[in-house]
Nucleic acid binder design. Sequence first.
RNA 1: CGGGGCGUAGCUCAGCUUGGUUAGAGCGUCUGCCUUGGGAGCAGAAGGUCGCAGGUUCGAAUCCUGUUGCUCCGACCA
Length: 575
Amino acid sequence: MIFFMKATKLYAPTLRESPAEAELVSHKLMYRAGLIRKAAGGLYSYLPLAWRTMKKIMQIIREEMDAKGGQEVMMPIVQPAEMWKESGRWAVYGDEMMRLKDRHGREFALGPTHEEMITTLVRDEVRSYKQLPLMLYQIQNKYRDEIRPRFGLMRSREFVMKDLYSFDRDIDGMNISYQKMYDAYSRIFERCGLKFRAVEADNGAIGGGHSHEFTVLAPSGESSIAYCEKCDFAASDEKAELKIIHAEPEELRPLEKVLTPDCHTIELVKNFLNVPIEKTIKAVAFMDDDERLIVAFVRGDHDVNEIKVLNAVEGANHLYMAGEKLIADANSCAGFMSPIGLKDSAIVIVDQSVMLMSNAVAGANEVDAHFINVTPRRDFDAEKIIVADIRMVRAGDPCPHCGAPLKMTRGIEVGQVFTLGKKYSEKLHATFLDEDGKVKPFEMGCYGIGVGRTMAAAIEQNNDKDGIIWTRAIAPFEVVVVPVNAKDDKQLAFAEKIYNELKSAGVDVLLDDRKERAGVKFKDCDLIGYPIRITISPKTLESGNVEVKVRRSGEFMNFARADVVKNILELLETL
RNA sequence: CGGGGCGUAGCUCAGCUUGGUUAGAGCGUCUGCCUUGGGAGCAGAAGGUCGCAGGUUCGAAUCCUGUUGCUCCGACCA
């Protein structure tokens, strides 16, 4: 698909200033460059420039999905409540799902995702293992009534998303499909010119096997990831597993209770007792949906990873901060908690590294008192506690694969792949008849890419003070031809010739034929971020050459008239 | 859902504390002139029920109440 156009006809209202509400660079630039306009909170119109880029990203996605055997379908956005009730998610999804009723009072939802839709589609049509594996995908609007839409297209309520669903006869097949998608995703984001990492992710409530998030590295990103420079390990902060920290052996001293007036924080205790923070044990009290008290213990200088706690405590779905009463009921008080003497009603979970500490400081479960010389493996009741890796990774922790110090960075999650297993096929009774004559549910996988978010991430990662810097593959136009004075017929005619030649050569080219001053047009070009600008002026007319400016490097070059098309094509290959 | 901020022209904002002719500026838009290598200049013009509703007052953009929308922080987030 080739785009070409004259700027006088292009609807791209650029602004000198950006709206006050825009915070992220990408959001500001999309607004200023005339890419998007807001209709309401989290709801945006894509103007022609943005939509061209979106279409290019979607095309790249289509090519890579098709290359792996994916087939594109289109499914309803308006989805009947029945299938959501059948899967159990009508209740689970909560306020985030946009719901509506038709004139007969029947309930529907605007699809936040399409597992139910695709699974019910396939269950009625696929009966035999001979029809597997099957990979179907769709690119269309999804709806999530975000509590707090923000950052423009990064977190909106209506967004364009690609979702592919795989159906396999067994886990091996599912893993092959997963690997195919993992590879396809890597290619997609490479082709989009993004710097990204595929990070191990928690697939939480969805259950099942493995999951990777494809995260574009950007300081403004909402997710935090840990990665290793020595090996290829990368994981979201919530997922990153940690090894046990071995403490130096030392002579054990007997447990002792001491007074610590007003020392209700680790900082205060540490200073009052004059011990290093590594010798303290910190308690964090949570409760779950059933109002069970869950107390997590980590080293004083560590933080609790709530996701790991959730995964370690059977039956817990959500964690909330525990109230004082709940803590008091367990025979303790906030600021002075420890597993020693805590009532059995409390679920105690202790970080694996804490168990190796010796002669440490922990609360005494009464106001203004702590224990010293706590040695968990001796003093904690092993029968009543859960020991697990529950701490939050931080920069410098050893890589779980190779031991090198980990680095932390922030990123924008643009895609996620995960295996679903039988979760939906079982609930929705989507089965096939296998070779052995048995009825089995499909092994499924689900693979999403946020298209708008990918565009926003590309801008977030590629911009300078003047505006957007598009990678050629997803630029709305690859080349812009600018006659500095479009009122000069000679310049305009010459520019039009170059424009036509590039057009014929298959280049996405825009002719900026607006009768604006040169400065205005140059500013717009830089703001919108076309990879290459060709300038036509009295100077270039005289010399017979054309001047070319590369947006990313700011480099100027001169091409001989006869070589323009050839040289531009070559130059584009490098952008 | 809790806490803060904001809502005045297409955009960015001033005016509000201390109520008083016809509500302002810059940018943008339109017309004319001029200019054409980095948002230039001159002259003129259009454009606002001051978010909405109610109240106080002789009089409300300004004070009070309610409401709605946006926004930031927190909580939450397949």
